Computed example of a mutant assay.
Amino acid sequence: MVLDEADSLMDESFTELLEEILNRTQVVVVGATFPAGLGETLAKFTDVGRFVTLSTQSLHRLPPHVQQKFVRLKGQDKLPELLLLLKERPSSGGAVLIFCNSASTVNWLSYILDDHKIKHLRLQGQMSAAARAGIFASFQKGEVSVLVCTDLASRGLDTSSVQLVVNYDFPDTLQDYLHRAGRVGRVGSKAAGAVVSFVTHRWDVDLVRKIETCYLENIEELLHQLIRFTYFVT
Rank of each mutant, 00 (worst) to 15 (best):
F51R: 02
P63W: 00
R61K: 14
Q140F: 04
Q225E: 15
L147I: 11
T41V: 10
G94E: 02
L18S: 02
Y111C: 09
T41F: 10
D115G: 04
L62P: 04
H120L: 08
Q67Y: 04
T25Q: 14
Q68K: 06
P35G: 10
S145H: 04
A137Q: 15
S161H: 08
T230V: 10
L147F: 07
V233Q: 10
F198M: 07
F70P: 01
T25S: 14
M1I: 01
E88Q: 15
H224T: 10
R61F: 01
L59T: 03
F229L: 13
R61C: 10
L82T: 04
S145R: 11
Q225H: 05
I118C: 12
G142P: 03
L9I: 15
L9T: 06
C214I: 04
L216W: 06
Y231P: 00
H60V: 10
E16K: 11
V233C: 10
L38N: 07
E16A: 13
R183H: 00
T15D: 14
D4F: 01
I112H: 10
D206S: 13
L73Y: 05
V199F: 12
V199H: 11
A103W: 07
L216E: 15
G188N: 09
N218R: 12
A6S: 09
E88K: 14
M10T: 05
L54N: 00
F99D: 01
V233A: 13
W108T: 09
G93E: 03
A43Y: 06
W108E: 14
D206Q: 11
T15Y: 15
T200F: 08
K69Q: 14
G142H: 05
L22H: 05
L84A: 10
G188P: 05
F51D: 02
I135C: 07
H179S: 00
L123N: 05
D172G: 08
V30P: 02
L42M: 15
A153I: 00
I135D: 04
S197H: 02
V208A: 13
V2W: 04
A6P: 01
S138C: 04
G182W: 00
V106E: 03
V187W: 10
T200G: 06
I227A: 08
G93R: 02
A6V: 15
K78A: 12
G188E: 07
I227F: 04
H224L: 06
K210H: 12
L9R: 08
F34I: 02
Q225I: 06
E81T: 09
R228G: 01
V96M: 02
V2H: 03
